[in-house]
Design a protein around this nucleic acid. Sequence first.
DNA 1: TTCAAAATCAATCATAATCTTTCATAAGCA
DNA 2: TGCTTATGAAAGATTATGATTGATTTTGAA
Lengths: 250, 250
Amino acid sequence: MLTTERHQLILNLLKEKQSIKIQELVELTSASESTIRRDLTELEELQKLERVFGGASRIAQNMPEPSLSDKAAKNLKEKQLVARYAASLVKTGDSLFLDAGTTTAQMIPFLKGKDVTVVTNGLSHLEALIEHGITSYLTGGFIKSRTGALVGPQATQSLENYRFDKSFLGVNGIHPGHGFTTPDPEEAAVKRRAGELSRSCYVLADQSKFGKVSFAHISDLSRSALIIDGLPDEALEEIERQTTIKVVTQ
Amino acid sequence: MLTTERHQLILNLLKEKQSIKIQELVELTSASESTIRRDLTELEELQKLERVFGGASRIAQNMPEPSLSDKAAKNLKEKQLVARYAASLVKTGDSLFLDAGTTTAQMIPFLKGKDVTVVTNGLSHLEALIEHGITSYLTGGFIKSRTGALVGPQATQSLENYRFDKSFLGVNGIHPGHGFTTPDPEEAAVKRRAGELSRSCYVLADQSKFGKVSFAHISDLSRSALIIDGLPDEALEEIERQTTIKVVTQ
DNA sequence: TTCAAAATCAATCATAATCTTTCATAAGCA
DNA sequence: TGCTTATGAAAGATTATGATTGATTTTGAA
């Protein structure tokens, strides 16, 4: 067996298993313990895994470096915080809907290597999705050139082809009385339908979103959770009566 | 065994196997170890594979792929000639389907100001469409990252939302017997359905396309015309019995 | 908590496998 | 023939491997 084949085998096993024992690898490869040890040492130096006593463990998913356009985004840190938590909810093999928008865009680097299938209506997500090798589908629809979102009846209808394990939606505002809000009725319709087609539904927001057309009353989304990086106390009380809420902090 | 045959054999084996040992190649080719080593060294210099200790390994991912802009550069003049003629057929207010591909892309600048509505499955058309202020819709579907085309059942289905005055399709090849051909069955399905949903259908090609899954027998497209910049005489005779054909010249 | 046994580890060495370099021969071509 | 290219064989350098040793860490029972 070639050295590189062994290395590849080890990395593949770690994609499935989180950690693996040296003895298992010895049996699987018919190589000696010394050889396996050397393999693990080398792969660790390449940051491909982490050695632990008795074996090796998958490395912590690497922090993505924000591209230039990302840096221009407002509240980037908060968005990334929220996005990272949201991505941590995703499991291998999940089928996801990723809403158009800058917060959901931050999730993409964290999805790398999770073997997920992503459906999106956000044209601006495409580059990152392709770059990270994520299997992707696009909804159809009218191209809103200002935001790069696909909307309209064609967009809503093309959602009917799919069922999602999880959907991740962005919002423009949250109001304890009116629910989640977004200025464009057509975008609202897409969000609403995507949520309905998902087994569970997460709304991503950062603190700045407090404050036009609602796409869902909070209580409409019985399987939903709100992920946010902070919240005024009085709003929090009202909202948490109606939905699961996760407040992410540094 | 010829040198080039060996090279081809090695590359074919690496399409199946990810990596291969020199000893295996020695047995398969009955060449000496030295010869195989030289083969691998040469193929590595051409970036076709990567040498590893004891053998060779498939190269990391996306090396040998000509970028979209590179492809566009080939036969650009011919493509523009064809595209310009095709665009001249478009009337104000028309509803169009614009197939993914580099030839159809050349039509976009000529559509400016014609007040048309364009539906496309070509992601690479988006920038130009938006830039030229053309009202545009995108089909949904699976994203083929290599060509930037949307394909699959979702793409075909989202076509059902529309009816076209004219559709403009690209091809990979034309064969008098087999009809228009394209290597990907999924892309073929989209082209075929778009043609069916159109009042009239134009196939754009340049002379280089003479030569795998056919998307339509020529005679299937009773309302179709082929637009091309040149053609071998014998093929022309056969094809013009089956469809309208326009040969564009300088 | 402490200690000893068991497991795991890093370091070293000898061997085996593979690599590069070099040279000589064979084959194709003008 | 004279030139170029492809090939195979061989020598010495380099790299990978497996076994061994003694150090380190973990485990579990007192």
